[in-house]
Design a protein around this nucleic acid. Structure first.
Lengths: 197, 197
DNA sequence: GACTGACATGTCTGGACTGACAGGTCGAAG
DNA sequence: CTTCGACCTGTCAGTCCAGACATGTCAGTC
């Protein structure tokens, strides 16, 4: 009950704001937490059941169409606090993006540069998206979730801005080295074939 | 064979540089890729077997103590290239760090601020670690992996520097809001109890 | 000649996650 | 009155992965 499995904590955290059904939570995941912690039905419904069994949630209301509304219990709140305060954050998660960088050597220099240029563009779009969200956030309700969402939003903006700058720099680096190799090849044609490989 | 499972690509990528055994690869993972893509024995050995069965690797040498050295095949290289060029990068991976920010509202303001201050400090240490690694990188061999590792290193540095700055800013934000709420409470004592909760 | 430490390979259990499938209800519009 | 779309709940097969466990070999040294 302690290792990773943060879906559990995401659900508890959302239910801290207000009771909700599995269906409601799916919508919320799509709109708000989806980028941060994707989750599908196949996970949410069983997990809600387990959490209720464990006493971290209670079924606060049974509605139409078999709707079950869950509410956070004291034990549930304690579990969130325990996770935040007493378990160590994972500072080095698996990073597919970084892995791709490490493997870039398997491509030609042109292809690598293209990839990095594409990343620059994609990062710029992410920044724009987040700025658009920020613009609508003025009329958010004054809840804790909204306040801390604002901090998370700022983090996202800085992250993508950083990625945009870095990838532009990295693409330039690759391009510069391509050129250096070409110059070298002109000076010493015997090397040329090997460098192109 | 196409969805995620990037351990496969990490292994293929490392074997692109030179043939190695499962044991060798474990050491390399610990030292170099470990922060980016952790992997354990329990995963590496079965995966090598599968990759060899699929023809993406070949057993290039059988040594003492049952040692099996694997080498990348043409099909293996093609698979790396396919992954890099034709599969879409996951731009929004699960982020435990961000999830923690979203849930910070479950803590008191003091606790939240402490967490953010701790993060500032931890980020600073990460920057220092990466700078130390960078200092030793001057005498790295002049391979593709080394070149692209350099780009990845720079990414890491910028990421942690950004995190350091952001978390310091976020802690200040929380502190400022704490103060604002206190001032308000002094003006309107009836609200005090609710705000402290 | 016995011990130790690095070398080297694997298996197994159990939890997390994806993507697809399956089934049922209610309100409103045509 | 029927049909459609939104609502609402779940299951299942297959993969991925962590952590622990099990097994054995070789080189050097005391």
């Amino acid at each position: 009950m302690s290792t990773v499995m943060s879906l559990r904590h995401a659900l508890l955290g959302l239910l801290r704001e207000q009771p909700a059904s599995g269906y409601d939570l799916m919508q919320i995941f799509k709109l708000s937490l989806g980028n941060t912690w994707p989750a599908t039905q196949g996970q949410i419904y069983p997990e809600l059941g387990k959490l209720a069994d464990a006493g971290l949630l209670s079924v606060s209301e049974q509605g139409a169409r078999g709707r079950k509304e869950y509410a956070l219990t004291e034990a549930g709140l304690a579990e969130i606090r325990h996770w935040l305060l007493e378990t160590e954050p994972e500072l080095h998660p698996r990073s597919e993006s970084l892995l791709r960088i490490f493997l870039l050597g398997a491509l030609s220099r042109e292809e690598s540069e293209n990839y990095l240029r594409w990343l620059t563009e994609a990062s710029g779009k992410e920044v724009a998206t987040l700025e658009a969200i920020e613009a609508t956030s003025a009329d958010w309700p004054d809840t804790d979730l909204a306040e801390y969402s604002g901090l998370a939003l700022e983090y996202g903006k800085r992250l993508w801005l950083m990625t945009e700058e870095w990838s532009a720099w990295a693409a330039d680096q690759v391009a510069a080295r391509t050129k250096a190799k070409q110059d070298q090849a002109e000076r010493d044609p015997a090397q040329e074939e090997e460098d192109q490989k």
